Amino acid sequence: MTVSDGGRRTADGVARVSGGTYAAVLTTTTAPRSVAVVTGLLALLVVLASKWGERLDAAVHEGGHALAAYLTGRQVLAVWVESNGGGATATRGRSRGAGLFLTVAAGYTGPPLVGVCSAKLLSTGRVTAVLILAAFGLVALLLVTVNRFGQVLLIGMLASLIVAGRYSPDWAQLWYAHFLAWLMLLSGPQSVLILHRVRRGSGGGSGSDADLLALLTRIPGVFWVLAFAAFSLWCALRGATLLVHA
Rank of each mutant, 00 (worst) to 15 (best):
V81F: 09
A106M: 10
R92C: 00
T103M: 11
V47G: 09
L67V: 11
E54Y: 08
V46Q: 03
T72P: 07
Q75R: 14
R126L: 11
G85F: 11
G115E: 11
H65I: 02
A106K: 13
T29Y: 02
E82M: 07
G107C: 02
A43K: 12
V76C: 03
A119Y: 14
A43H: 13
T39R: 11
G86D: 01
V81A: 02
E54L: 10
A49G: 14
T103F: 11
G110Q: 14
L42R: 12
T91R: 12
W80F: 03
R55N: 03
T29H: 07
G63Y: 12
G125K: 01
G53P: 09
L41G: 06
L77T: 05
E62A: 00
T72D: 07
G107F: 08
T89D: 01
Y70S: 11
E62Y: 12
G73Y: 03
K51P: 06
A66V: 06
V130F: 01
V127A: 08
V104G: 08
L131Q: 11
H61A: 01
S123A: 15
L56R: 15
V130D: 14
V130E: 13
V60S: 04
G125A: 05
S95Q: 13
W80C: 00
T124V: 10
L131W: 00
A66S: 12
G125W: 00
L56E: 04
P32K: 07
Y70V: 00
R33D: 00
P32E: 00
G63F: 05
A36T: 06
L121D: 08
G93Q: 05
V79H: 12
L45F: 13
S83K: 15
W80S: 00
L71V: 13
G73D: 03
L122Q: 13
G64R: 13
G93K: 04
L77S: 01
G115V: 08
G115T: 08
H65C: 01
V46M: 03
A66N: 11
G115I: 07
V76K: 08
V104D: 09
G115S: 09
T103Y: 11
S123T: 05
H61T: 02
I132W: 10
A58R: 15
S123N: 05
K120V: 11
P112Q: 10
S83W: 14
L56N: 10
A58K: 15
L48F: 03
L71H: 06
T128G: 14
G40D: 03
G99F: 04
V116Y: 15
K51A: 05
G64I: 00
T39D: 01
A59I: 07
